[in-house]
């Protein structure tokens, strides 16, 4: 898994890339929680994610819960087909705010 963190229009954009599984989901979890604690608005760009397993999904869920507590804005964007499928299977596609594109997420 690779990642890229940028700040655009006052929003911290965390782009996750590659496969997120048990091997690297702890790193992904830390990255997400750190971003939420440091920013007022966080957008997760999932366009480069080729695979995500339940441990990766759990990291997203935990990030959502912490952001709600902190009052930090949190949304997903540009979910790749594999990510979208797992979120659908997990019935979480309605739990998260998922923007079609990163740009939409920045203005939305």
């Amino acid at each position: 898994m690779e990642h890229d963190v940028t700040v655009r229009k006052g929003t911290t954009v965390v782009a996750l890339k590659g496969e997120i599984d048990l091997d690297n989901s702890p790193a992904a979890r830390k990255l997400l929680l750190d971003s939420i604690n440091d920013a007022s608005r966080v957008l997760i760009d999932l366009s480069g994610v080729t695979y995500i397993d339940s441990s990766g999904v759990a990291s997203l869920v935990e990030a959502l819960q912490v952001s709600k507590k902190n009052g930090t804005g949190f949304a997903l964007a540009a979910a790749s087909e594999p990510t979208r499928r797992v979120l659908e299977l997990a019935r979480l596609d309605k739990v998260f705010t998922i923007h079609d594109t990163v740009d939409a997420g920045l203005t939305g």
Binding site: D53, S54, S55, V57, A58, V61, V86, L89, A90, R91
Partner: peptide, 15 residues
């Protein structure tokens, strides 16, 4: 044990 169990283990079994 869907949908209460969001823990990755339980979620994995659901999947």
């Amino acid at each position: 044990v869907w949908p209460e169990d969001l823990k990755p283990g339980g979620l994995g079994v659901c999947l």
